[in-house]
Every structure is written in structure tokens, then in C-alpha cells.
Amino acid sequence: MSVLAMCPLCADDDDVEVVEDLSDGRQRVRHRCGYEWTHGAADVAKSRPAYTLDELRSRFPGPRDVDPKWLLRAEELKAEYLQREPGFDPAVSWTTYQQLFSTDGLWTCDPVDLWAFANDEAGAPPGDPSVFNAAWNEMGTEVAARYTRNTVDYLLRGPDDIPLEDRLQHLLSGTKPFSMPGFKEAMLTKVLCVVDAERFLPILEYTTEAGGKREIARLVYGLELPAPGTVDWTLGRLVVWSNDVLHALAGEGFANQEHAAAFLRWAKDQAAGPS
């Protein structure tokens, strides 16, 4: 055994043998006196029950978890906002980029269009593109365009048996050899906003000091979403699931998802929630 085990009855560590390796990383051991005990510390990751994706999704905080007082406050803010901003003139039309990311358009477009998307702040700033731009210049236009195309294609049209949120995580973590450097959370989320404009809000980061989806959920709805970085709550899952939660909470009455996102950003900067 890697860690010395001592019999708690005899205070003796001679002739201690392993009887069984337990599933949580501990061991069942026995001293020569005949006494048996469980030795070691449980590995949390091994002892935690394995959940299916559907089970995890069902455990994710949602509209059902919002306190009615917070929901009422959010509805009051929404009414106030829609009275001030009943319409919305989008900063950019997604039509051009929708064609760019179509099955045919992605593989036949001018590589410059892919570079331009990663650097276009219209609609929703895609974050700092410096890593992407440096990689693009180092790799050369042809190779960089191929990596970018493969990245977008995997996100949008990857294997059917891999859910969108997990394909997103693969790209965020860089586990796929074709992942384009620097084409990460904000840019990948913006691709989803372009291609599925009815579903995805142009709020491109899950958590940020300036106010990502997690901060908006807390400040507008009093809803605490999970922190990223755990095995089950991967960032890819958090990005997609938090979007769907905010989409559902914002509700109808907006011209488009850009309008709804503008409301959510405005609402998070208003007075604190209900007392």
C-alpha cells in the first residue's frame, strides 16, 4: 500500500494486508490480529455518482428555482425597458454570416471572411482576437482557414452522438487536433448566435467581471448558476444551458435575441433585487 496502515486496536503496522480495493479509492485492510477496517481517503471524483447528460441537465438551475419576488422584479424591469425601447435596430444582420457558416458556404468562402468574422465586433464583441490573429499569421491563410473551417464544422455539424454542449467543450479544451487557436468561447458562442438566432442570446461569455450569463442570472433573477471547472459542469454545458435558462426567463416581447440580450444587460445594472 502506498500509505502506511496501522491497526487501530494493536497500534501495529506489521503484517497488514489489503483485503479489497474499494471503488472510491479506499482499501479494506486486515491486520494479523484479525481486525479489519477501511483505510485511506475517498476520492470524491470516484465516489460521486455518475449522471447521464439528461440527469445533469435536469439538475441544472432553471426558471423553477427563481424566487417569485425576484421574478416579479425582473418583470417590472422588463416592462420599463420595453416602454423605453419597444423596438430594436440590430447592429448587424446575421444573414451574411449565416451563409458563411452554411454547409456549402463554410467550405467555399474566401478565407478573409472567416478572419473578418473573428475580428468583427458588430452584434457582439467576440473578445480579444490577438491569439487567433497571431495563430492565423503564423499558420498562414490556407492552413488557418482550414483549421477554422474544421472548428466551426465540428461545432455545428459534429457527430450526432455527441451533444452540442460537449462538442463545444471539446473545442474549448483544445482536445481536438483541428481546433483553431484563439477561436474559443466568445467566438464559438457568436457562431451559435449567427446560426441559431432564435435560440442563442449574444451574451458571449459565461462568467466575467463585466457581466456574463452567470452574473446576469444572479443580478437580474437572483439565480445562482454553477461555477465552471468541475467534471460534470463543464464550460461547454454551462454556456449552452445558461443561455437556455436566460432565454426562457427573458420570455417574449422582444424583437429578437439581440433585443432580449440588451434588456438583460440593462437590467443587471439597475437597483438591487427585492428585499
Rank of each mutant, 00 (worst) to 15 (best):
W70F: 10
A267Y: 07
D110G: 01
C109E: 06
N243V: 07
E85Y: 14
R167Y: 10
A91Y: 10
W107T: 15
F132V: 04
K184V: 00
R48M: 12
R146M: 13
Q257V: 08
E75K: 12
T38F: 11
T108F: 02
V220D: 02
Q99F: 13
P129G: 09
D43H: 09
P90W: 09
L223N: 01
A42F: 00
D54E: 15
R199M: 04
E185L: 05
D24N: 11
E80H: 09
Y221F: 12
Q257R: 15
N256I: 03
G212I: 08
K69R: 15
H31E: 04
K69I: 10
R64W: 09
V245I: 10
L238E: 00
P228H: 02
K190I: 05
G34M: 07
K176Q: 14
P226Y: 06
E20T: 08
S47C: 07
L223S: 00
G222W: 08
E215C: 05
A118S: 05
P129I: 11
G87S: 12
S275R: 12
A144C: 03
P177N: 15
D232W: 13
P90G: 08
A210Q: 15
M187N: 07
V239F: 09
R157S: 03
S93H: 08
V18D: 05
I162Q: 10
E138Q: 09
L4I: 13
A91R: 13
D160L: 13
G40V: 03
E121W: 08
A79W: 05
T208D: 14
D153P: 02
Q98F: 01
G127S: 03
D232N: 14
T151W: 00
V16E: 06
D54K: 15
Q99H: 14
M180E: 00
